[in-house]
Write a protein that binds this DNA or RNA. Structure first.
Length: 985
DNA sequence: CTCTCCCT
């Protein structure tokens, strides 16, 4: 294909994947035309629609102005507000660019109005009027829902026309013209219809956030859009970004061979003055945060404070210190001063200033300290006085030396924590105005950077750090680390101070340190395992995932790890084990999807869990597996009672709740057989009990469950149940709110299914001889890690310590802890995970046997687990392929075990059937004749033997006759082929 | 014995 000419090296691969897509698109082409016709035939009674028809015809003309105008009847006040948005001035430029290009990149910071207005421009230009609709993707569910509501309101249209779709719900109708959805939803739609024929334009919003689905969508759309246009089904792509970092899209030749135009839109934001610290506290940044907030509150004019910290624990500890320092219940006496002196250090000077606080003109302020960049060098010499007229706002960053022992209720501060796992009703408090006379102070994690916008914020305090999850690419172990944020992130945080009026951002680090921050955060896709993405792409018939036009590709280790896991799970066909080395190398990263993989790709969960679902039908286990997978997929189903409490009484309350929660988990885990399902039994029990009780907030509260998590599990169970029924018509599974606990047999089955899905997450208790080193006490060994891993103390199996376990994940904190642990049996491992086992030669005893039920030769084989060489018990399995199997099959055939009809001749054989196995067998021609005959038809089992007979009824007759006296030949011929039951005689 | 944040 001509587009791929620039990368000569892999033009071959590109061609084939292009062809794949061509193929897909051609298949869909006729369907699409039919759909178009259907759409056109639909009755269009509305006046607006008549205009649409007319305009649509003129659309193709080469006018420089949009030829189409679909009227929208906006309310006057809305129209007025709209006209103030900077993006409105750019409508013409934007629409002309869209007209002239397949893809347009639009950059505009928050406040430009691009998200709400661009869909309206497109609507007015007729993009939803000729059969196609306008699709908009958002990285978050809340954003998708609120965006659709807002655009509907602005356009004075119903939610049936401007609609949304998220994972579990939506209000899309057949009249929908603008559809706002989460990015994952659109990706799933591509699985159903590669050409996205419903849409005439797709807007990818918040592309700068670089969420994995956004990145994949852009990669896919870079191919889909030209394909659509080539087929005469016009389609446009608009990528919207809040930052100017768009080179990954525009300069990426694999994505767009000619760079799409970039249009910049001004943002109307209020000025935010940024204040850097002179010194950067490296350890006690929470203390510095606390002191900075105290100063702002004492010295600066009214206005909400938003504080960025890194985690729940920090948030609560700072909240607690602030509440002590500025109690917002004025009457309450605070005599229990448990805080350290440092916590309550206050500046006398600051206090004096507070008394005579001037109204400062905040708009009129320098953006940066004059000596920007020199702070660190001057640190130690510089003191925070002597800053002249800027003093009032330049709060300084040295801990004050003066002590203040008493809490100050005269200036109440309304302190609220905010983080993602916080209960929604607690979260909602930040959106309400603070009590009269008090100042709002929200102490938040990164949720407040993008997901939630808090009104009335004038001051931002930014600790400059973020907590991120890290994955070890080799071992898969994850850990959380606090790192510096990027400059883009720091600016985003600062911007939160200027939403309603000019504001100030206090950065608890120097501008030199800021200068060392990376410009932008890394794309998420480079920071996490990609097996789920690879499976989805394989399902789209993109076999050579390395050639996919990622805006930023994942590391090749990550891609290889993903491919290997998917092969182990059976989702991809095994690569060739023979042939030239270069071909094997090539095959390694381009394995096609298997039928199992197709089924797995239909389940919207991680591949390991999808495998469990694919196996879940046995012994009525499906509803349990669906529940377990749902609970494992939804994070943090238990309430956390270990965080620092706000007060002593709260502490007591929390420890009571914790005790109750621990007790309930023990109850749900059960005893005996069910306990061995471990933490997964706890999940199953918790969900079962909660649903049985009707999923009320009260039940969750009383039993230490997160209500929001339980709701999500309920919805996920519903979705997975539908998916299972869709993939497998006779699965016949439904969501049972009164689900009975699994029987003992079912628990055994569940553990095996879990083992099959988590085969690469297996661990074994260390052996006695290794216990000499105390660091291995109670430890487990895994195939990939040299260091010991442990069962997490919160696990149901923490004290049981089974010999073999599988785990959901390993999280490294003080030690490496396995979470989501389930006990497994050693004899299941070779049976269920043969791909990870090295099998030794068949055992002599018990001797190989013929299994009449399945018609194959079986034997016992020992094995060891890969990399760690754990000795596993011998289990019976298919005799390994090879000549020996033919010989054994021949022996069992002669004995009459394979075909009971010839059993009666076994006593008259001219040689013993065991002659087949002797080293000197060749001395007897009849052994060679029989063996050659079997090999020629690959008949080393009953099924292929019968197949050979269907081709040729006389097959094997003469070879067999050599084993029996001539007198019987005629009788034998009569019953040949000896298929079916023996004569009852 | 402790966990940033999101999406199918």
């Amino acid at each position: 294909m001509s587009e791929s000419s620039e990368d000569d090296d892999d033009s071959e691969e590109s061609d084939s994947s292009e062809e794949e897509k061509e193929k897909i698109s051609e298949e869909k082409h006729t369907e699409e035309q039919q759909q178009q016709q259907v759409l056109k035939e639909e009755t269009k009674p509305k006046e607006a629609d008549m205009k649409e028809e007319k305009k649509a015809e003129t659309w193709t003309k080469e006018d420089c102005k949009p030829a189409v105008f679909i009227p929208v009847e906006r309310l006057p006040e809305i129209q007025e507000a709209r006209l103030r948005l900077p993006v409105l001035a750019e409508e013409q430029i934007i629409m002309e660019a869209v007209k002239d290009h397949e893809c347009v990149v639009l950059c505009g910071e928050t406040g430009s109005g691009k998200t709400t207005q661009v869909p309206q421009f497109l609507y007015e230009a007729g993009f939803a009027s000729s059969g196609g609709i306008i699709g908009v993707t958002e990285p978050r569910r809340v954003a998708a829902i609120s965006m659709s509501h807002r655009v509907a309101t602005e356009m004075n249209l119903s939610s049936g026309v401007v609609s949304y779709q998220i994972r579990y719900e939506g209000n899309v109708t057949e009249n929908t013209k603008i559809k706002v959805m989460t990015d994952g939803v659109l990706l799933k739609e591509i699985q159903r219809d590669f050409l996205l024929q419903k849409y005439s334009v797709i807007i990818i919003d918040e592309a700068h956030e670089r969420s994995v689905y956004t990145d994949i969508l852009i990669g896919l759309l870079s191919r889909i859009v030209p394909l659509r246009n080539k087929k005469g089904l016009p389609m446009k792509l608009i990528i919207m970004s809040a930052t100017l970092r768009v080179e990954d899209f525009t300069e990426n030749k694999r994505l767009f061979s000619s760079p799409p135009p970039v249009i910049k839109v001004e943002a109307r934001q209020f000025a935010v003055t940024v204040h850097f610290n002179k010194r950067t506290p490296m350890d006690d940044y929470t203390g510095e945060t606390f002191r900075k907030i105290c100063k702002i509150h004492r010295m600066l004019p009214p206005g909400g404070i938003l504080v960025f910290l890194t985690g729940q624990a920090e948030v609560h500890s700072v909240c607690r210190r602030l509440r002590k320092a500025f109690p917002y219940k004025p009457n309450r006496e605070h005599t229990d001063m448990m805080e350290t002196e440092e916590d309550l250090k206050k500046s006398k000077r600051a206090k004096k200033k507070n008394v005579s606080l001037p109204r400062i003109n905040l708009d009129n302020y320098s953006a940066l300290p004059v000596d920007e960049g020199d702070e660190d060098r001057q640190a130690g010499i510089d003191e925070d006085d002597g800053e002249g007229s800027d003093l009032e706002l330049e709060l300084g960053d040295h801990p004050d030396t003066d002590h203040e022992e008493k809490a100050d209720p005269s200036i109440p501060l309304y302190v609220l924590p905010l983080y993602s796992l916080l209960a929604p009703e607690q979260q909602a408090k930040v959106f309400r105005p603070p009590p009269a006379g008090s100042r709002l102070c929200v102490v938040a994690t990164n949720v407040a950077e993008t997901s939630l916008t808090i009104p009335g914020i004038k001051y931002v305090v930014d600790c400059g750090r973020v907590k991120k999850r890290f994955y070890d690419r080799v071992t898969g172990v994850s850990s959380f680390k606090v790192t510096w944020i990027s400059q883009a992130s720091a600016n985003q945080r600062a911007g939160r101070a200027g939403r309603t009026e000019p504001g100030h951002c206090y950065r608890l680090y120097s501008s030199a340190v800021f200068g060392d921050f990376s410009l932008f955060s890394e794309a998420e896709i480079t920071r996490r395992p990609v097996e789920d993405l690879v499976l989805q792409m394989k399902d789209l018939n993109i076999e050579k995932v390395v050639n996919f036009p990622f805006p930023t590709p994942p590391s090749s280790e990550a891609l290889i790890a993903a491919e290997e896991l998917l092969i182990s799970l059976g989702a991809l066909e095994k690569p060739a084990r023979h042939g030239r080395l270069s071909e094997m190398e090539k095959a390694r990263l381009s394995c096609p999807i298997s039928p199992l993989g197709r089924a797995m790709a239909a389940f919207p969960v991680a591949p390991r869990y999808a495998k469990m679902l694919a196996l879940g039908r046995q012994q009525g286990c499906m509803q349990y597996i669906i529940t377990i997978v749902s609970a494992m997929t939804v994070r943090e189903i238990f309430e956390d009672y270990d965080r620092p409490a706000g007060s002593e009484e709260e502490n007591v309350k929390m420890s009571g709740k914790k005790a109750r929660s621990v007790q309930m988990r023990r109850l749900w885990a059960g005893q005996g057989a069910s306990l061995l399902l471990g933490d997964l039994m706890v999940l199953l029990g918790a969900v079962g009990a909660c649903e049985f009780a009707g999923l009320t907030p009260q039940f969750c509260e009383e039993n230490g469950l997160r209500f929001k998590a339980m709701l999500e599990i309920r919805r996920l169970r519903g979705q997975l149940t539908n998916a299972v029924n869709a993939v497998c018509a006779d699965a016949d599974v439904y969501v049972d709110n009164k689900m009975a606990p699994p029987t003992e047999a079912q628990v055994l089955c569940l553990r095996q299914i879990v083992l099959a899905g988590l085969g690469d997450h297996i661990a074994r208790r260390v052996q006695a001889e290794e216990l000499l080193d105390p660091k291995w006490r109670n430890a487990y060994k895994t195939p990939l890690l040299d260091d010991p891993v442990f069962i997490h103390p919160s696990s149901a199996l923490h004290k049981t310590l089974p010999e073999f376990v599988v785990y959901q994940e390993i999280m490294e904190t003080t030690k490496m802890y396995m979470r989501g642990v389930c006990a497994v049996q050693d004899d299941w491992i070779p049976k269920l995970l043969p791909q990870y086992c090295h099998f030794s030669a068949p055992e002599e005893s018990p001797a190989p046997r013929f299994c009449p039920l399945i018609g194959r030769v079986k034997c016992h084989q020992q094995s060891t687990f890969f990399r760690v060489s754990w000795k596993l018990p011998a289990i019976e399995m298919d005799y390994p392929e090879g000549l020996e199997r033919y010989k054994l099959f021949a022996k069992f055939f002669l004995e009459g075990q394979v075909c009971p009809k010839i059993q009666k001749f076994s006593s008259c054989l001219l040689s013993s059937p065991s002659t087949m196995l002797k080293t000197w067998a060749k001395l007897q021609p009849r052994t060679e004749v029989l063996l050659t005959a079997l090999v020629s038809e690959k008949a080393d089992n009953r099924t292929s033997l019968e197949a050979a007979w269907r081709k040729n009824e006389k097959y094997l007759l003469s070879a067999y006759c050599q084993w029996i006296p001539e007198s019987l030949h005629e009788e034998v011929s009569k019953i040949w082929p000896p298929i079916g039951q023996a004569d009852p005689r």
